[in-house]
């Protein structure tokens, strides 16, 4: 055997095939149910607040990760957030060049712990740290109670 014979396609070699026949159905959970229902019905983005640790969690959780208190205090997230960090994806999941570069950002909101990692619908040259953005939701009848009900974040207009 020599390295000259190496191949990068393992399927050309002698092999046994295998397949794990499992697929998955998930539950949104107790906090997730309220978060997604509110997003779908009323287009509001909610967070949960821990009074003891003074942290407001987004996405909302039913417990505080710092003190493990059960959280019952729900708050609406401010409409405008800021880009904390971003990247521009140029290849798709197959490794081919994407039709157009896609901007991904970590978006934070004033007074909120956590935030969203989501798509930013803006030309890449416009996106920078600190850019103010707002969520663009699907129209209510098309919303299904999923994270993709937020289509993208767009630069906030003043």
């Amino acid at each position: 055997m020599t390295f000259i014979e190496k191949t990068t396609d393992h399927r050309k070699l002698r092999r046994w095939e295998g397949n794990i026949e499992a697929d998955y159905i998930y539950t949104s959970g107790l906090a997730g149910e309220r978060f997604f229902t509110e997003l779908r019905k009323n287009g509001r983005i909610l967070a949960t607040h821990c009074p003891r640790c003074d942290l407001t969690y987004l996405p909302p959780r039913m417990y505080c990760e710092r003190c493990l208190a059960e959280l019952r205090d729900w708050k609406e997230v401010p409409a405008t957030g800021r880009v904390e960090a971003f990247t521009v994806a140029r290849l798709d999941e197959e490794g081919h060049e994407a039709p157009e570069p896609q901007v991904w950002a970590f978006i934070k909101f004033p007074g909120i712990h956590g935030g969203f990692v989501h798509i930013v619908a803006a030309p890449e040259e416009k996106v920078k740290r600190g850019l103010e953005v707002r969520p663009r939701l699907k129209p209510q009848p098309l919303r299904t109670g999923e994270i993709t009900d937020i289509e993208a974040f767009e630069p906030a207009e003043h």
């Binding site: 539950t27 906090a31 059960e70």
Partner: peptide, 24 residues
């Protein structure tokens, strides 16, 4: 159960902490 894996862990953990009379 409706709970996510994280929420299931929380419920059991909170109960255990309360039963021991301690905090996280």
């Amino acid at each position: 159960l409706m709970e996510t894996p994280k929420e299931l862990c929380f419920e059991a953990t909170r109960m255990a902490l309360d039963s021991a009379g301690i905090e996280l």
